[in-house]
Nucleic acid binder design. Sequence first.
RNA 1: GCGGAUGUAGCUCAGUGGUAGAGCACCACGUUGCCAACGUGGCUGUCGAGGGUUCGACUCCCUUCAUCCGCUCCA
Length: 552
Amino acid sequence: MSRSMEKIVALCKRRGFIFQNSEIYGGQNGFWDYGPLGTELKRNVRDCWYRDMVSGHNELVAPKTAPAKYQMVGVETALIMNPQVWKCSGHYDLFHDMMVDCRESKSRFRLDQIRCRWVSFKDATVKQDDTGTELSKVMVTSTAEDFHEDMTSEALRVFGQKKKYADKLQWDGAATTLDKVDVSEFATVVAPGASKAGTLTAPREFNLMMKTIIGALGTDDDAAYLRPETAQGIFVNFKNVVDSSRVKLPFGICQVGKSFRNEITPRNFTFRSREFEQMEIEFFCRPDESAGWYKYWRDTRFQWYQDLGVSKDRLLLRDHHADELAHYSVGTADIEYAFPFLDAGEYGELEGVAHRGDFDLRSHMEGKLTKNAAGELEVELNEDGKPKHRGSGKDLTYFDDQAKERFLPHVIEPSAGADRATLAFICEAYHEDQQPDENGVLQERLVMKFHPRLAPVKAAVFPLIKKEGMPEKAAEIFGALKAAGLSCQFDQQGAIGRRYRRQDEIGTPYCITVDGDTLTDGTVTIRDRDSLQQDRIPADRIVEEVLSRLNS
RNA sequence: GCGGAUGUAGCUCAGUGGUAGAGCACCACGUUGCCAACGUGGCUGUCGAGGGUUCGACUCCCUUCAUCCGCUCCA
């Protein structure tokens, strides 16, 4: 991790932004706790998002860049849902891969993606890993697209034969995939690239959804999953919201909440955690208008980070290439940030904005969808020709009473990570600069330049010295700010300069100091964190002054 | 999951098979009247956790947890 990131992590702990979870017991990999200041900061991130996207949105006026006016509403759905939700959404199949590891190459494979076939070559043999037995017939494997050719070269390689003898290989049976092969035969399987047979471990379920049990006598039949994303709670409530809230297309349903994924490698501080918070919008619109809305949300969300102080230099709006798109997606863009733990030129995802077509609503109507040979989505069938995962069968179409049409809306999904956004704001705020001390000599200063809307503490109040009634007057001002609902700190400890520095380090935008003049003319100074400029204003106007600066 | 490194006070780090240290931070009192480290005094540790070797382990060995780096993975 880069030196600057280490400093940021150290600051987060030292000042109470972010702690390692269960730290006194040695921690828990992939989980993090927010301390007093981090809690304030993250709540400000959530509040800004909800206010800017939902509660503060004026549905009577189309924003300048929007194709039309639209409505926004919120929901808060349970962390645990009927398991069928995940079967239809595709998460269940995708998140239940059987994996094997190769002990020799240290690489991991999905069992159903390894092609394999029995082969022998005259008198040549292949050594077996554990026992050292020489095997005359082994199963070769391939993960290549053109697996027939790849298996041929693998077979020649392990038998130590030249390319020209390819036609001397004796194949036995048809090529299949490794998930169809009994584990007892793994000792004869040569893993891709391996020099010996039998280097694969027994297959293990790799469950990326967190499993839990419902009911006190829970058995495996009562398994349920903590949601791996908040979006499905919105889709399954689509009909409820339409029926109960008088919303008309186009409109968005939003949700902020926790999600859980068994990340293989939690890494990079809070960036990849196993428990994390999402801020998601599912925006429903007419299919023929979806392209315009996709562009609108992409640009709107990109701008949001900049409005809260993230420099455009470290932000990237990256459109996915066609071959990078998920199978359901018509178009996807990532909003990415140049986190300090990444190499120069690399970016980490803050938010994905995806055009999902009607994939999600249709899945919950008809059942799990898959792409057919023609590239069209259709319900995935099992061996019996029945749907692999049956949908709800409920009609989730929308009736447009202006156009007198019934159709399945298309969806634009801006899906943001609250913890990732919080981390980006922390990284972005971190500054080391130099400011003159009382003798005019430059001194190092550590300052968190949070946008005032995000700052965990909005103002600090100091009596210049601890006597002559200054603490009492300062306490009065502190009380007034608190009564206005502002997060504030009171500090009379140590030299005034040190107190300013303490506040700089936690990103407090304004410091108010009661001094000798306050007692005679009733004015106090208000100091700006970034410019260090001080203005004298009447003490009884301090609340409105702070509020107006916060909102400017 | 694999390999390597690391784990000592709130932070940054010394340390030795024989009773645990420094600087900073923090707290109290004093001083100070607007940009940190002035004076005096004070607090702080199951040396990551568990087990073993030893008369004795922070130190040596094993296990485990966490963090960092590389590989793998990234829906």
